[in-house]
Design a protein around this nucleic acid. Structure first.
Length: 646
RNA sequence: GCCGAUGUAGCUCAGUUGGCCAGAGCAGCUGAUUUGUAAUCUGCAGGUCGGGGGUUCGAAUCCCUUCAUCGGCUCCA
């Protein structure tokens, strides 16, 4: 007998060699039906695997990531089986489960193209195969046999993958007529897969290398119940309505022009208002926290970027240098603000007593992003960073770092961004030559970041190989409407630029010392931040950010005079207000202005004109009753104050 | 940049296998109406069917090319 310990601490004895599935059945047959994989002694396994020793076990249902992953991973094999049936000779790359569903990278062979119109056919084949309810069978295989098997099959992608695996760790999974190289775990059978939707098809380089073959990637998602798929599709439809590109157009916030150039956003008046509100908000915050605001030009001499190292690394992929009438003189559109800020630091001598120097700028930068990569306001070629650089003594680094974390979290709280993730990006330990700076400095910087985040109780995931070339960083990501993650705030330690620009301060020993530099943004860029804000609020900005706070709706033309008077009072009280004096019925005016997401609708008719009041309706929330004009002014002011108070 | 898809009025979309002057709703402008909490009615105006080239008696529709957009990949200082 073996002893099994469950997550709640309870223990039970079972026969040696029992499977997780049988254990689940022993608890309840219903549970057994809902379980998709199990973690046994820390190892994620198929339900069918026998348990031979005393173990702690956790059974994974749909609600666990592990459960979903087994479900979707098996679905991806099911799709592969369908593809093999429909496209004989098709070759397979990798087919993992992802955050929402799964994909498989395939090579249909020359002269065969899979497009979206083919997806329903593949979907139907999958349903047909799923209905036959065949099992996923695990099999261990030697490296030699595995290579032989896939060589025979003619699948060079699989043989390439196998060649990099260690002998003795290679497993195959068979389902129906399809055999795949796979680590697992998988469902016991295709039986639970009830609802199937293939969502899109896209190109993807084999192993992410743009020099290698472009595979066809087919995305799909499956569920154990049709209702869950229907709900998911409705969610996607709803999310589309929150797309910032669509709302930006609807609410006249920003636009793009082919004549101006792709990826170069044009901020319309209302969008500019939102943007300016954000800038004013953050500027006030920065001044309180000891930042000094600076301003630098949009261009810089090429030599500046040669000195900083950016030219060597990114010069080829940037907007190309601008030549001047002067022979040999070249300027670049600035792709970042740091070199300019370094030179500002260098303009005056610094004592250890005045450090840290905190230098901030809403700096517009230009980066030549690849054309296929541009996306609304989230990925553009010109954008304004809420950039800042902290120049500090090494002993101040940790505290500076923690202060910035505080600031970012404070701003996210005001913005109601609750669903963010924090990622610590470190060097790729196997590729250290990719980075500049000394080993010693890198190690210290990485340690400082990890410890500062720890001291702030920040939940982070650590990713190796994602660091900037000059230093490690801590990034804050917020999701858009359909769950794509975008990096907003970032804090980056840099021991490199201070060396290159020979930045110094006088220590208490009257010797020159090297400051540490921290790069940081909170919004990331005004463009990306506004985009994410739009998608998170579906364009219903909080009152303090809204470009127009209220709109006056006279019930008929007879009250236009009184409406004009109210308008003047409100605008004079710094409450940006519009008037809708069209000869339309009040219902129509309400509808139109509700759709414009103006926070307050002020309805004015005979009663209001006589008593000097307004009837207040809150956007999305209906009638709020009658108020004196002064009362409303104070109400709006206190609302805004509340929104910004934490 | 790469793979695939898409491009018709300011916006959202119709336009059967190529065939008479390319349609609708919303928005806009007219005029009527003077309205009490999510759509009043009338009339008008709006398009070189992304651009260029070709096939054809005839192209929004077929072919080539180019530009842009969308979904991904790669990249992201």
């Amino acid at each position: 007998m073996i002893k099994i310990t469950f997550p709640d601490g309870s223990q039970k004895e079972f026969k040696k060699g029992i499977s997780s599935l049988e254990i689940a059945e022993g608890i309840s047959p219903r549970l057994a039906k809902e379980v998709y994989s199990a973690t046994v002694n820390g190892e994620l396994l198929d339900l069918a695997r026998p348990v031979d020793v005393d173990a702690t076990i956790k059974l994974h249902k749909w609600d666990d990531t592990e459960g979903k992953h087994a479900f979707w991973h098996s679905s991806s094999h099911l799709m592969a089986e369908a593809l093999e049936a429909l496209y004989p000779g098709i070759k397979f790359g990798i087919g993992p489960a992802i955050e929402n569903g799964f994909y498989y990278d395939v090579d249909p062979g020359t002269s065969r193209v899979i497009t979206e119109t083919d997806l329903p056919v593949i979907e139907n084949k999958m349903k047909e195969l799923a209905a036959t309810n065949h099992a996923f069978i695990r099999e261990e295989i030697s490296k030699k046999d595995a290579i032989e098997l896939f060589t025979k099959k003619g699948d060079e992608y699989k043989t390439e993958l196998i060649s990099e695996l260690q002998d003795g760790t290679i497993t195959l999974y068979k389902s129906g007529s399809f055999t795949d190289l796979c680590r697992g775990p998988h469902l016991t059978s295709t039986e639970p897969i009830k609802a199937i939707k293939l969502t899109s098809v896209a190109g993807a380089y084999w192993r992410g290398d743009e020099k290698r073959k472009m595979m066809t990637r087919i995305y799909g998602i499956t569920f154990p119940k049709q209702k869950m798929l229907d709900d998911y599709l409705v969610f996607l439809e709803e999310a589309k309505k929150r797309d910032h590109r669509r709302i930006g157009k609807e609410l006249e916030l920003f636009t793009f022009s082919q004549k101006v150039g792709m990826g170069l956003p044009l901020w319309l008046p209302k969008g500019s208002e939102v943007r300016q509100n954000l800038i004013n908000f953050l500027t006030a915050l920065l001044k309180k926290r000891g930042y000094k605001i600076v301003t630098t030009p949009h261009i810089g001499n090429v030599d500046l970027y040669k000195l900083s190292g950016h030219f060597e690394k990114y010069g080829k992929d940037s907007f190309q240098p601008i030549s001047t009438p002067q022979e040999g003189e070249q300027f670049m559109l600035k792709p970042m603000n740091c070199p300019h800020h370094c030179e500002i630091y260098n303009a005056t001598p610094h004592s250890y007593k005045e450090l840290p120097v905190r230098m901030a700028e809403f700096g517009t930068v230009y980066r030549y992003e690849q054309s296929g990569e541009l996306h609304g306001l989230t990925r553009v070629r010109s954008f304004t960073q809420d950039d800042a650089h902290h120049f500090c003594r090494p002993d101040q680094l940790r505290d500076e770092f923690k202060n910035i974390i505080d600031l970012i979290l404070y701003v996210f709280k005001i913005m109601n961004f609750n669903d963010y993730t924090a990622q610590i990006s470190l060097r790729d330990p196997d590729n250290k030559e990719k980075y500049i700076g000394s080993e010693e400095n890198w190690e210290k910087a990485e340690r400082d970041i990890i410890e500062a985040a720890g001291e702030k109780n920040l939940v982070t995931n650590v990713v190796r190989g994602e660091a900037a070339f000059y230093g490690p960083k801590l990034d804050f990501m917020v999701k858009d409407a359909i769950g794509r993650k975008w990096q907003l705030g970032t804090i980056q330690v840099d021991y490199n630029l201070p060396e290159r620009f020979d930045l110094t301060y006088n220590g208490n020993d009257n010797q020159k010392h090297r400051p540490v530099m921290i790069h940081r943004t909170i919004f990331g860029s005004m463009e990306r931040f506004v985009a994410v804000l739009i998608e998170n609020t579906s364009g219903k900005f909080p009152l303090w950010l809204a470009p127009d706070k209220a709109v006056i709706l006279p019930i008929s033309d007879k009250f236009n005079d009184y409406a004009a008077k109210v308008l003047e009072i409100l605008n004079n009280s710094d409450i940006c207000t519009l008037i809708d004096d069209r000869s339309e019925k009040i219902g129509k005016k309400i509808r139109d202005n509700e759709l414009k997401r103006i926070p307050y609708l002020l309805i004015i008719g005979e009663k209001e004109a006589e008593s000097g009041t307004i009837s207040v309706r809150k956007q999305g929330d209906g009638d709020k009753g009658v108020m004196k004009i002064e009362e409303f002014v104070n109400f709006i002011r206190s609302e805004i104050k509340n929104e910004l108070a934490f």
